[in-house]
Design a protein around this nucleic acid. Structure first.
Lengths: 219, 219
DNA sequence: TTTTATCTACACCAAAAAGGGTATGCCCAA
DNA sequence: TTGGGCATACCCTTTTTGGTGTAGATAAAA
């Protein structure tokens, strides 16, 4: 590992003793790692980070008392410089987003090997982010899968003119303003809006705007 | 590589001859790869895919005549089963989103080694997605950075009740329906909406819904 | 060449929302 | 105890909306 005040100290937070022990053994063999702390729940993890000079936390998602997400939030709030590597199962992928927003620095799988763990530590200590390709694939699918389908179906459903109009609507323009801007009659703008509601099976303008936003149709 | 009609054929699309030649040499040594085609621009790449039974395209982003994004779109539109591995420089990261939506199956770096290329091919041929950790880091930052700020500022601005109401509004419910659901008067619901408009400095419900959607306030 | 899609525009009508305020309890913190 | 923020509620007028049709012009596709 490179440019940092070596050796570094690490906290392993996981409620499975076998895992903490295993990781501690692996990491104990690394010359750049001095201290290794362990915690079997989120609350203890947060406390340990507050009390000791810990550089990096290897955090399980599913822990008693305080889960990995909450623990990450609290740690990052108090000590933003502490790096957090989340060890998740693919089944936890649904909360990857929340963890990202909570400030997690890396994601690796429980299926990841020693090499990937060490790589992740190396990367985050150097101030960068790391996500294992397996977890990326999940994010990837969320970003591309739905939107790809949607764009194919939706952008075929909405005509160029309609797209233009929904964007103006979402911008907060009134029919009058849109009509002025596009040199149309207000009723025409309204017709387009109504046509969109009908073809997308939506109830009202609010849901239309939401739909547009969630389907990446804006801008 | 596993379950597919082996050997597979691959197209390398890149306008740098050194790269196409290098990749062709690397891939030519693989026993599971039979045919290797090359193209030095996007238009030729699309044509080759249409004319030959190509399983996987290794696509450069920056190419003359037709760039990687457009080529990806066209190929995926005509032949969705052709896998596309985008080889990007980190400087291309800004269009990762667009490529995702265009249907790209994998992203690797120009700095990636042979091992990662082969892994990516393997993964996409098996119908999964692959993003190299370096590129993930970019997506990571985009997901975590901005939204973290937004949630901190925004969720402090909107009260719990207001959040509840904007969510219902975005769901397409009318004031009456929301009032019924929350056991409120319709005018109260309306007051909350107006208060949100005022405090967020927005013009109307459409822009409010858009704001909520873009700031991740919905569900 | 006919059909189809799109863009344009209008009519009618009831319901809803916009926008402008005002106001009353409640709780919490200064 | 006195604001402040929050949730609640109402009034009034104007504008927009939602629902349902109709219809001409035009360009592209079948």
């Amino acid at each position: 590992m490179a440019q940092y005040q070596f050796p570094i100290s690490i906290l392993i937070a996981d409620d499975h003793r076998l895992i903490t022990d295993g990781l501690a053994t692996i990491l104990g063999a690394e010359k750049d790692i001095s201290e290794i702390y362990t915690a079997d729940n989120g609350r203890d993890a947060v406390e340990l980070v507050m009390q000791h000079a810990i550089d990096c936390v290897i955090m399980d998602v599913d822990m008693p008392i305080l889960n990995g997400l909450e623990a990450t939030k609290q740690i990052k709030q108090q000590k933003p410089n502490v790096k957090i590597i989340v060890v998740s199962m693919l089944s936890d992928a649904a909360i990857v987003n929340k963890l990202l927003r909570a400030g997690a620095d890396a994601f690796i799988n429980k299926e990841s090997g020693k090499a990937e763990l060490l790589k992740a530590i190396n990367v985050v200590i150097n101030g960068k982010k790391y996500i294992s390709p397996e977890i990326s694939a999940y994010l990837f699918t969320r970003l591309s899968g739905p939107k790809a389908d949607q764009e194919e179906t939706v952008e075929r459903q909405l005509t160029p003119r309609e797209l233009e109009i929904i964007r103006h609507i979402a911008d907060g323009l009134t029919n009058q303003e849109i009509a002025g801007k596009l040199f149309l009659s207000t009723v025409t703008v309204d017709t387009h809006r109504k046509n969109m509601l009908a073809k997308l099976n939506l109830k009202n303008t609010a849901s239309l705007v939401r739909y547009a936003a969630e389907h990446g149709l804006l801008k």
